[in-house]
């Protein structure tokens, strides 16, 4: 039996909204420690790794490991019916063929209950182990989203060049070019506005703008995003949850 109660439905809404345009369906792997997902987009370029740790939930129990195959579009429609501030409880019996979803209004005496049919998903997992990191950038997630959107009008690629004291985002396209430079900044009054760059080795990587557009749909999940880059390796874009994370691994582009 799985039962997880979110203090606010908005958290699961944001998670599903951040994932559903990359992957249409995925397995939610539920254990006593929480819920995790690994899913890859159709083009095999972008991988989503989600961990919702047990502490994220107001209440959580999972007696036996279970895998729930979920259509994210369908889940999004159902959880869209609840108010952001509602309690949201998901539950499933062992060997269940449906996921039970309950919203409780915190003010009115109102409880809404839905069942989502589960899917049998045969997904092959990639072995994503710990990776070396040459450069790590942490910046406000809204700033990163704006950089990606602004650069996308110029080109289908975004080049990220990291040196000791700056990160340069560059797009070169038919209509022209764009450059945005960010530098480390410590904002004591507004720590969420701080920018940090740590570097072991200079980085010059290009990523597909359309995949970055999918990644920045996670912006509302966290005020900050951490970008980990390694030469000729996938970039890791991490949005922290109150306890856990939503990570995207994006394969870089390469020159002929």
């Amino acid at each position: 039996m799985l039962e997880g109660k979110f203090e606010e439905a908005s958290l699961l809404k944001k998670i599903v909204e951040a994932m559903k345009d990359c992957v249409s369906s995925c397995n939610f792997n539920c254990t006593e420690n929480g819920i995790s997902v690994q899913a890859v987009d159709n083009s095999r370029v972008l991988l989503i790794s989600l961990l919702i740790e047990k502490d994220t939930f107001e209440e959580y129990r999972c007696d036996r490991n279970i895998t729930l195959g979920v259509g994210l579009g369908s889940l999004s429609k159902i959880i869209g019916n609840g108010a952001n501030s509602d309690y949201l409880t998901i539950s499933a019996d062992d060997d269940a063929d449906k996921l039970n979803i309950i919203f409780e209004d915190k003010v009115k005496d109102k409880i809404s209950e839905y069942n989502l049919k589960l899917l049998d998903i045969d997904a092959d997992l990639l072995d994503v182990g710990p990776m070396d990191t040459d450069a790590t950038i942490t910046l406000p997630s809204a700033d990163f989203a704006k950089i990606c959107k602004d650069m996308k009008v110029l080109s289908e690629s975004l080049q990220i060049i990291v040196t000791k004291d700056s990160a340069l985002f560059q797009s070169v396209g038919d209509i022209g070019t764009g450059n945005i430079v960010i530098r480390p900044k410590t904002d004591i009054d507004h720590p969420e506005e701080s920018v940090t760059i740590s570097l072991d080795k200079p980085i010059d990587l290009s990523f597909g703008s359309k995949y970055l557009s999918d990644i920045i749909k996670a912006t509302s999940l966290s005020q900050k995003v951490t970008i980990k880059l390694t030469d000729q390796s996938p970039g890791v874009f991490e949005y922290k949850l109150p306890s856990g994370y939503l990570r995207f691994y994006l394969a870089p582009k390469f020159d002929e």
């Binding site: 890859v40 083009s43 095999r44 370029v45 972008l46 991988l47 990639l126 072995d127 994503v128 690629s157 290009s206 597909g208 390796s233 996938p234 691994y249 394969a251 870089p252 582009k253 390469f254 020159d255 002929e256």
Partner: peptide, 14 residues
Amino acid sequence: PQYQYILKLFFDPE
């Protein structure tokens, strides 16, 4: 021109 790597090349070299 630029080409797109796929993830399998990095995480599942077999």
